[in-house]
């Protein structure tokens, strides 16, 4: 099922469990991701995709199991080491999560100014450069997030995620809420940026077009477990009833929609 694991995965979740009250959301999730690969995790709404991502990036602690980054156990990293550790991550949030009190360029340059101590003038140049790379004009730099459309906010969020050249980049439902054309633009930009940076990418989505486009590999999360994992090209020949039902969007099959 899973690929033969490379010497040291860049990112690995090992036996991760998470519950909220009585509800078990993750029930022993193992996800190694090799350096430079792009993994997409698919699954229905409420199956714990976002929780998986939050645990991987350290925004949430698992109840059991480990998170390893480049072989180092970072599951219970003290707050004091968190900031330095997070420097190797980039993340594009589902709703872009731009800071609405700051202009677009200040958003993009946030890490540079506030964590890396880059002078504002230089930080602005780098931010504008990153904005250009995601197809946003320099004139957008001085606008506030509220003045941008959803698609443009996602692009600005992408620029913010890549501006400091992260080692690992996370995408939470990058195309959700976008029209098909804008969604495809974002997919292309993601592929382009990940390739340019040569970084490891982990995305979650329930949009199959997006999963096929940005993933080298796809894993399916269902009922707290990874039920299938394979190369993106095999997604239509998985012989896995869960994957087949999900990919083809059928109401009947082993996945029961809970009402």
């Amino acid at each position: 099922m899973s690929e033969p694991s490379t010497p040291t995965p860049m990112l690995e979740l090992r036996g991760v469990m998470k519950r909220f009250g009585d509800k078990i959301v993750l029930d022993g999730v193992d996800i190694p991701v090799a350096k430079g690969r792009s993994l997409v995790i698919i699954g229905g709404s409420g199956q714990g995709k976002s929780v998986t991502l939050k645990i991987a990036i350290g925004l949430m602690a698992p109840d059991a199991g480990q998170v390893l980054v480049d072989g180092k156990d970072v599951t219970r990293l003290p707050q004091s080491e968190r900031a330095a550790h997070n420097a190797q991550f980039g993340m594009l949030f589902q709703g872009a999560a731009l800071f609405d009190s700051l202009t677009i360029w200040e958003n993009v340059a946030f890490r540079l100014i506030n964590a890396d101590g880059v002078p504002r003038k230089l930080a602005r140049e780098r931010a504008v450069e990153a904005l250009t790379r995601v197809g946003l004009a320099a004139s957008v730099a001085d606008l506030y997030p509220i003045e941008l459309s959803g698609g443009m906010q996602k692009r600005a969020g992408l620029a913010r995620a890549v501006v400091a050249a992260p080692q690992i980049i996370f995408f939470d439902e990058p195309t959700t809420g976008l029209d098909p054309i804008n969604a495809d633009v974002i997919n292309d930009l993601i592929v382009e940026q990940v390739k340019r940076l040569g970084c490891t990418a982990v995305s979650i989505t329930h949009d199959m077009a997006s999963a096929r486009k940005i993933g080298d590999e796809i894993a399916m999360l269902h009922k707290g477990k990874i039920v299938w994992r394979g190369p993106a090209s095999q997604i239509d020949h998985s012989n896995n009833p869960y994957v087949d039902q999900f990919v083809n969007g059928r109401a009947d099959g082993p996945i029961k929609v809970e009402l």
Binding site: K54, A87, Q94, F99
Partner: peptide
């Protein structure tokens, strides 16, 4: 509102402690 729109999570991933900022 920053919590609800994941801006606080974003702060953390941008290596900035929300308690400090």
């Amino acid at each position: 509102a920053m919590r609800a729109t994941e801006q606080i999570d974003a702060l953390q991933t941008l290596s900035t402690d929300p308690f400090r900022y």
